[in-house]
Amino acid sequence: MSYHPVASSRDLAGRHVFQACLLGQDIALWRADDGTVNAWENRCPHRGVRLSLGVNLGDRLMCRYHGWRYDSGSGACSHIPAHPEGPIPATLCARRFPVIEAGGLVFVALGDDTAALPTLPETAIPLRALPVGRPAEAIAAALAGAGLAAAGPLHFAETQGGATVHLLIQPASGTTCVIHGLADMSAEALPLQRHMSRLMESRRRAWEARP
């Protein structure tokens, strides 16, 4: 399984739980106070409630349903309020996915963690990601059809505002995707970010208008 982008580093704000979907797999992403990024299956192992509904406590994630707490890093359950005296089964653990932060984006792999990352620009500034109500393959075909250079099956590049802009497509569900953008530039990025947001919104309107 390969790594796919699911968020930008900036998306993982302090004490926040980010919700992502990759290839139909719902994921809860959260950054601990020490910087550790956790990518977990978005369901509490106890009763299946989405962990993205939960609370990022800084070093642990708390499920909303019964207050069970899971440690950053290991994913191990470390507190079950209904039974404060314990014991907590050693196998009780949030299901973790391999996660890497690179080039301002956060990449997750659903399988093993030996897969390679896409080749990314050295100085990259993330653009606003754009969810699209069309499958990843359809958007890849549309970008290729528009003449963008393909750097991989779900990785395209174009020149905008004098900078190289990389577009990486996250296959979300079977019918939706998210386009993550990286601008290869070190200067003031906001004008380009605004330009790209407008451009991508306009492209999205066209893509979604087609049946």
């Binding site: 369901r43 192992p45 106890h46 009763r47 299946g48 989405r50 209904a82 039974h83 089964p89 009780l92």
Partner: peptide, 19 residues
């Protein structure tokens, strides 16, 4: 927000405790 929406009856779907 419980996933899956249907109740899993197969073994080890969830992690029950005494409660």
């Amino acid at each position: 927000n419980q996933m899956p929406r249907r109740l899993p009856l197969y073994p080890r779907a969830d992690s029950p405790v005494r409660a």
